[in-house]
Design a protein around this nucleic acid. Structure first.
Lengths: 344, 344
DNA sequence: ATGAAAGCGCTAACAG
DNA sequence: CTGTTAGCGCTTTCAT
């Protein structure tokens, strides 16, 4: 069943069917109605492939993530899909699973399907691969790491705002021995978080000497706390480079019979959904995944509709900010003093 | 840049280019080499839309899930994608988000993009919608609920095997007051789990009188335990219809100062990734998401390659089985007796 | 306002 | 073994 069949049955030309379906206003209301009746009766759905072929636009956006199973991404994918549906787009989701072969395939798949734009939300893509996309003038949107070039937009994350809030929150609770568990430091995003921590501590004159490198995984968080405990300069609070790390810290603390937050305050980063469900619920720096997805989608839409490549306003900004939950409390010493005060 | 450009530069016809690219064996090795050289030099990628148009096969499989943010699904999506990549397929992921409008759109999107098959892993799709797909003879694969029809495959989950193991495990640990927190009972999959529990309890002559209806959410699990505690016939163990429920139970127990597993043994169902990361790690009935994804993909591939619609062997079976972790222990009374014995 | 016809990039029959 | 050509289903000039 194709457009010709509809045309025949509605006794009009295929051009008219096409116009009716695409709601071209100049088409006669009578005819349009006739066409639609047939379309509905036969349950006709236009062939998107054919449309794409002639129009040169696939109405597909690529979305590259590290792994869908990383809890950071599902929310993003969902939001992206919601927006796609609203705008009559589909999304071509590829995950790199940290495998260079898959990254290459990812790019290849994008090009073969002729996507109208790609959001790259994974860290550490080879520049040479992206060259293929840039060469074809495929609109691109990055997080943090994008080059300053035509057709590419960038979402800049303001790590400092949220991390500063976190540090000051801890300081206000009288914590002075505040540790930081970083992510893998070759990641720009992990490095930026660490630097934000350093700066925030410096601003309020606290020493930032309890720093452990983690790997953004739960296991990494567990290992980090172990190291911290072994080092014997026990922190009373620990700020983590992401939520999974924080969850690992909480888990390890549990195994050491340390109470969170009574014995140790913990703050995460990202605010993945799961952070609400830990015991206790995790205080964390939110980097809104839905906001990020929205910005990415908007950036792509903007670029697609563009006529002249007026190269500006392709920088977007995402603020981070502290979400207070239950994993932070007054520093232990202060807390005990307060309690004994009450006891009297 | 298109196939003609390649043809021109390699001084052959487009047909030869097409053959070379598709590795048709009859093409002369010399020419093929010449073609590939040009292809590689220009970075030419065939246009999938055009291919799909002429071949009638889109090389896209639809994948319908409830919500990507439901922790049950990411693993499935990832496995499905891995298989898709291996087989030169793409996946069109749609989520219904429990919204009838979105379900309808989901089907429409599948048809418009002319998918070669659809895996429906969401519960409670309108039959009338699926009619559209069946009408077009789009191969379909369901979990549990599929009709017995041509082009339709079904993955039957053997809920009993795993749930029986769970019940017997609990019984072996001397639990007698075993509660069950069900899912929403209008869901076939939830009902099946409850029935499996009933049967398993009956088999070993234990009364199954502590049953609460939950909703497969963390909050539901919390509420369920609250009810159970209020009911005053405190269970020593609780089996949950899914892992999120179990996590809610654990959380609620924590708030009541009940220790898991010392005071209460908890078993989940599904074995989502998260189950390994709760405190304590959750003993649960595994319904392997990767296995499920593999079966679904294979079912679709099978149907696609099929010539005659030989209507048989489109039933697949998925076994469930108990994974022991740390959330179960001897029933409290027995446990204490054992401890005091040791003390002597 | 409507229709005829060209053509999007590719594959597959058919001819040579 | 290779080339010529028709056509996949649709949109879009260009006439009318």
């Amino acid at each position: 069943m194709d457009i010709r069949e509809i045309a025949r049955r509605a006794r009009v030309s295929t051009a008219t069917v096409s116009r009716a379906i695409n709601r071209v206003p100049t088409v006669d209301a009578q005819l349009a109605k006739r066409v639609w009746r047939v379309v509905d009766k036969l349950g006709y759905y236009p062939n998107t492939q054919a449309r794409a072929l002639v129009s040169g636009r696939s109405r597909i956006f690529g979305l590259v993530v590290s792994e869908i199973t990383n809890p950071f991404f599902p929310e993003i994918v969902q939001t992206f899909e919601n927006l796609a549906v609203e705008n009559n787009y589909e999304i071509l989701l590829t995950s790199t699973v940290h495998d260079p072969k898959r990254m290459e395939l990812s790019v290849r798949r994008m090009i073969e399907r002729r996507v109208d734009g790609v959001a790259i939300l994974t860290f550490g893509m080879e520049d040479s691969l992206l060259e293929h996309l840039r060469f074809r003038k495929v609109p691109l949107v990055f997080v943090d790491v994008g080059p300053d070039a035509p057709h590419v937009a960038n979402i800049r994350i303001d790590y400092l705002s949220g991390i500063r809030q976190a540090v000051q929150h801890l300081a206000a609770l009288r914590h002075t021995r505040i540790a930081f568990v970083s992510g893998p430091l070759q990641l720009k995003s992990a490095l930026a978080r660490k630097n934000a921590f350093l700066q925030s501590m410096a601003e309020i004159g606290l020493p930032a000497n309890l720093i452990v490198e983690g790997d953004h995984s739960l296991e990494g968080g567990m290992g980090a706390l172990t190291k911290l405990i072994a080092s014997n300069c026990c922190p009373t609070a620990v700020l983590c480079s992401n939520d999974m790390t924080a969850i690992g810290v909480i888990r390890e603390a549990y195994d050491h019979d340390m109470k969170i937050p009574a014995d140790l305050s913990v703050i995460g980063f990202d605010d993945i959904r799961l952070a609400q469900f830990t015991t206790p619920p995790l205080t964390t720096v939110q980097m809104s995944q839905t906001e990020l997805a929205k910005l990415a989608f908007r950036a792509l839409m903007n670029e697609v509709g563009k006529v002249s490549p007026n190269h500006r306003m392709n920088e977007y900004r995402l603020i981070t900010s502290l979400i207070l939950r239950r994993s932070t409390e007054l520093a232990p010493s202060v807390n005990e003093r307060k309690k004994s005060l009450k006891a009297k």
